[in-house]
């Protein structure tokens, strides 16, 4: 599995926010670092196909040999993890994960309700949340919510993972633990990961290849 960027760039009103020429292999992490407002999250949304006007996206994104740049967001096969867990408040924990499970398997056979339920339970077990299947997501702690959110993303069988500041809403103690789970599971599924963060520790923990974007021009002393 691999995620390849070739001349991929995102621009806003003529200003190029970022330009990527990289290959991310399965299980590897590419980290986009930069100050807030630098447009690093826009790059992520562009890869997911969720960025609309007035942004301009150019270049190619190739996922597992397939160009996905022109596809609608729901056909790209990239799983997105946001800063907040964004569990659906009208569904139970299990329903949230089942919502992500595809209705057909890899060979195009229809999955029954029980099969989809079993897949969802398996993903909950991967994040050690199988005991919470029937709970109301609103009753979970912050760390538990983000683990369910990860299970939901993985249950959608993505071919790449996009992480948008995934740990910054968590407190210090939970951050390390959640980080370890996310990267371990991404490696297990051999998913290429594109991560946006402003915390250098995130990139370090992932052993990531780091790209700085939107960095201000080096201090030229013009301000003083």
């Amino acid at each position: 599995m691999s995620l390849v960027f070739a001349g991929f760039s995102v621009a806003l009103r003529g200003r190029t926010l970022a330009r990527l020429d990289e290959t991310v292999a399965g299980g590897e992490v590419l980290a986009l670092m930069g100050p807030s407002g630098s447009g690093k999250s826009s790059v992520l949304l562009a890869v997911a196909g969720l960025l609309g006007a007035p942004f301009m996206v150019a270049g190619r994104v190739v996922l597992d040999g397939r160009e996905i740049g022109g596809l609608a967001a729901d056909r790209r096969g990239v799983g997105m993890v946001f800063q907040d867990a964004l569990l659906y408040p009208h569904m139970s924990v299990l329903q949230n994960v089942m919502f992500a499970v595809k209705r057909r398997d890899g060979e195009g056979r229809r999955r029954g309700r029980e099969a989809r339920r079993a897949i969802a339970m398996r993903h909950l077990a991967r994040v050690a949340m199988e005991g919470f299947a029937d709970r109301d997501p609103e009753t979970l702690s912050g760390g538990q919510k983000s683990r369910v959110s990860l299970a939901r993303t993985l249950a959608g069988e993505p071919r790449a993972l996009l992480l948008d500041e995934p740990f910054s809403a968590l407190d210090q103690a939970l951050r390390g633990q959640t980080r370890a789970i996310v990267f371990a599971l991404a490696r297990e599924d051999r998913l290429p990961v594109l991560m946006v963060s402003h915390d250098p520790v995130d990139a370090e923990a992932a052993g990531a290849n780091v790209i700085e974007i939107g960095a201000l021009p080096s201090a030229g002393g013009t301000l003083i």
């Binding site: 997911a48 969720l50 967001a73 729901d74 997105m80 964004l86 659906y88 009208h90």
Partner: peptide, 24 residues
């Protein structure tokens, strides 16, 4: 982002509307 999550899970616009937006 509720609908963006659904889109990134591979769920089409029509089903997103019925299963995410309308119930919420």
């Amino acid at each position: 982002r509720y609908e963006r999550v659904a889109a990134s899970l591979g769920i089409g616009a029509w089903r997103r509307f019925w299963t995410v937006r309308l119930p919420l």
